[in-house]
Amino acid sequence: MSNLDESDRNWLRKMLLTPIRRKGRKVLEIDDKDNVILSSGKRYKTRDPDMSDLAIEFYETLYGKTMLESVESVDSKKHFCCDDFAGDTMNSYKSVANQFFGGNPKRCAKRKEAEKNGEVPPWLQEYFDGYHCLANFWAIPKAIGRAGGNKGDRYDFAFSYIEENLNNPDDPEFLDRHCVRCYTKIESDDSNTPECRLVVDKPDYDNPQECVERVKELWKARAEEIVNSSKAEQLLKCFKKLSSGGSTC
């Protein structure tokens, strides 16, 4: 449990829910005008916000592990220390948008055309604008994340992934490690064996707008759990240092 005062809690919560743009030379630069966080991408050569320098600092602070090798390889890129610990955006935008425009989860020409012509509905555009936030970034195995696998289902949502790992005896720290215990509760059956289950039903995947609302609830719930976690003070200290011009935590 964190001992942050309300002002610090609000600031940390904002950092977790504000969308990140991979831009600029600073690890963390707050753009209040556009309500985004700008972050450099020096440590891992990609345009993806989920592997921006700020995102990597977030993973390493929250999970307490080093993510990237210290020396660049022959392809001028730092690789993951362990392929089971790679940053990724947990809940997808494209699979929701593709479904709305009548495509399959992986591709849809109509979606691309609508984006080009500015014809995306406001609720979906709002989701697109916000889904690259720290509350939606997890450190998961590369094979099911950055390498293009499915995180529990073909829509790339966290719901099935959480459900699959709730009671995994090989990974008893899953819920606490990812800060998603708030989305579950303990139940006991007739054998008095305690088990976890999701406290909300998975969304109707045929209803993209419902999917968006459920995913946004998950962001907020995870952000709140992080704010209340034992890692909160360390994250706050890290972000404050970075926002003041520090290069690393």
Rank of each mutant, 00 (worst) to 15 (best):
S2V: 05
S2A: 14
D8F: 01
K14P: 07
L16S: 04
L17A: 10
L17C: 12
P19A: 14
R22H: 12
V27K: 06
I30G: 00
D32A: 12
V36F: 10
L38S: 08
S39H: 11
K42G: 12
T46N: 06
D48E: 07
M51Q: 08
D53G: 13
I56Q: 02
Y63K: 05
K65E: 12
M67P: 00
L68S: 02
L68T: 00
E69F: 01
V71A: 07
K77M: 14
F80R: 09
C81P: 00
C82T: 07
D84N: 13
D84M: 11
T89I: 11
N91G: 00
Y93A: 08
N98K: 11
K110I: 10
K110M: 11
E115Q: 15
N117Y: 04
G118C: 06
P121T: 04
Y127P: 00
F128G: 02
C133Q: 13
L134C: 09
N136R: 06
N136V: 11
I144C: 02
G145N: 15
G149C: 10
D156C: 03
S160C: 01
Y161I: 03
E163T: 09
L166V: 03
P172T: 03
H178W: 15
V180T: 04
T184H: 05
T184K: 05
I186N: 05
I186M: 15
T193Y: 14
E195D: 11
C196R: 15
R197M: 14
D201W: 05
K202D: 04
D206Q: 14
N207L: 05
N207V: 03
C211Q: 06
K216V: 01
K216F: 00
W219P: 06
W219A: 07
R222E: 07
I226V: 06
V227A: 00
N228M: 02
S230W: 03
K231Y: 01
K231T: 02
A232I: 05
Q234F: 00
K237R: 05
K241M: 14
